[in-house]
């Protein structure tokens, strides 16, 4: 019974992580798309020669995707895998 409660906990934790990270990615990406649609002059602002705000933000969305994946992998490789191994060992 205890093992099944632990599984429920693990399940809840995994989906919280997954949904939170997915929502963050969606917010960043659609934020960028809406800026492209409604803030064209703003994104055209030059931050320096050859670099506009839009290009910087666009590249940052790609970097954000990498960072979110890194956060997930770090969490999964340590906390999640350890919990899975513990569950396997006990049941």
């Amino acid at each position: 019974m205890a093992a099944s409660d632990d599984l429920k906990h693990l399940d809840a934790a995994r989906w919280r992580m997954a949904v939170g990270l997915t929502a963050t990615m969606m917010a960043l990406y659609f934020g960028f798309i809406l800026l492209v649609a409604f803030g064209k002059p703003l994104l055209g602002t030059l931050l320096g020669p050859g670099l506009s705000l839009g290009m910087l933000l666009g590249a940052l969305v790609i970097v954000a995707a990498w960072v979110l994946i890194w956060i997930y992998v770090r969490w999964a490789n340590t906390h999640y895998d350890r919990a899975v191994a513990a569950l396997r060992g006990r049941s």
Binding site: A18, L21, F32, V36, I62, A65, L68
Partner: peptide
């Protein structure tokens, strides 16, 4: 120019979704 970046980013952001869900 810049507009091409919009497509590239769209193709890339599908991967975190694949990973998390």
């Amino acid at each position: 120019g810049f507009d091409g970046l919009i497509y590239s980013i769209g193709f890339l952001v599908g991967w975190p979704v694949v990973m998390f869900l």
